[in-house]
Amino acid sequence: MQTSTHLEISRRDLLISSAATVAVTGVAGGAIAQSAGNDMVQTSKVSFIVNGDIHNMKLDNRTTLLDALREHLHLTGTKKGCDHGQCGACTVIVDGRRLNACLTLAIMQEGRRVTTIEGLGKPGDLHPMQAAFIKHDGFQCGYCTPGQICSSVAVLEEIGANIPSHVTADLTSPVALTAAEVRERMSGNICRCGAYSNIIDAISDVGGMKA
């Protein structure tokens, strides 16, 4: 369980909490409470951290992490492209790992730390990967871009953590940062405009890969 004590609850979070009907105190662990009364309304309370801010929400059990981010927290940088884990536009980083926010329930994120594209950087204060995407023109329409960037950041960490991929030649040697490794690992992020080559250039640049 992540502790909540280090975290300042921002004004915005308080507003969201109150808008979400019930303000909860702290990030209590344990079983998630069912809302009492109307058994047709299946909702649960959940608290998780998004880009450093804690959010206490009461949500429809069916709400995905993606819809919680977009529709409830108004963090629309995370995109919906298929809603079935087939395109990668909704990629966010949860507890240090990238995942498809469309294929996990918000109420399963209790205590987790979620980083979205908004948490990586802002215009004027860009994450190096965001800056590299601009420099190398790693996007056209910009829709798959937040997912590509979140994935890119995580891919470099996965390679650094020696997690193998389909193209890793030797499972028992450390994984190397190569174009093929990056391409394979980024294959869960579809770009229909076809910025793939430029995305690889951006990741290579940030990862310090030799050309």
Binding site: I117, P123, F133, I134
Partner: peptide, 10 residues
């Protein structure tokens, strides 16, 4: 419009 697109603010 790059800064907006890469930060999810487009």
């Amino acid at each position: 419009d790059g800064p907006r697109k890469v930060t999810g603010s487009a």
